[in-house]
């Protein structure tokens, strides 16, 4: 059992990080904090992909003389893409936050919803 936990520690860590990130996204009302949580949630998934690709004693998958065992390159490629997608999402989200802040003068979710419910809150420009 203990051996199993130790040999799967990378999974446990990934699960913990993913859940912490997801919790921050759902539970927090601050729009920037939500995005930070979202980032952690996305980042944690990198571990799910990359960690199993590692072979102890292997090297980075750059083929050269003198090495025989390489870690799996495919997850690296996928995660490179995922990182880029993550930062693109973050940037777009922050741009939205900036615009929301200008339109509502707040970046707290509850406050924003309250301002839209106010009788003169909504409406078109």
């Amino acid at each position: 059992m203990l051996a199993h936990i130790w040999s799967h520690f990378d999974y446990w860590a990934m699960i913990f990080l993913a859940m912490a990130g997801l919790f921050i996204v759902i539970a927090r009302g601050n729009l920037i904090k939500k995005l930070v949580g979202l980032g952690i949630f996305q980042t944690s998934v990198y571990l799910l992909y990359v960690a199993p690709g590692k072979i102890v004693g292997g090297t980075a998958p750059i083929v050269a003389e003198g090495f025989r065992v390489y870690s799996n390159p495919l997850p690296h490629v996928l995660i490179l893409t995922a990182i880029v997608v993550g930062v693109a999402t973050l940037a777009l989200g922050l741009a939205l936050v900036v615009r929301i802040r200008e339109a509502y003068d707040s970046i707290e979710e509850d406050e924003i919803l309250r301002r839209d419910q106010a009788p003169d809150g909504g409406g078109e420009a």
């Binding site: 940037a91 922050l94 741009a95 900036v98 200008e102 003068d105």
Partner: peptide, 14 residues
């Protein structure tokens, strides 16, 4: 571009 847009948008311009 993103840097320009963020940096060029001072909070005091509201």
């Amino acid at each position: 571009k993103v840097f320009y847009l963020f940096a060029g948008r001072g909070p005091e311009e509201e």
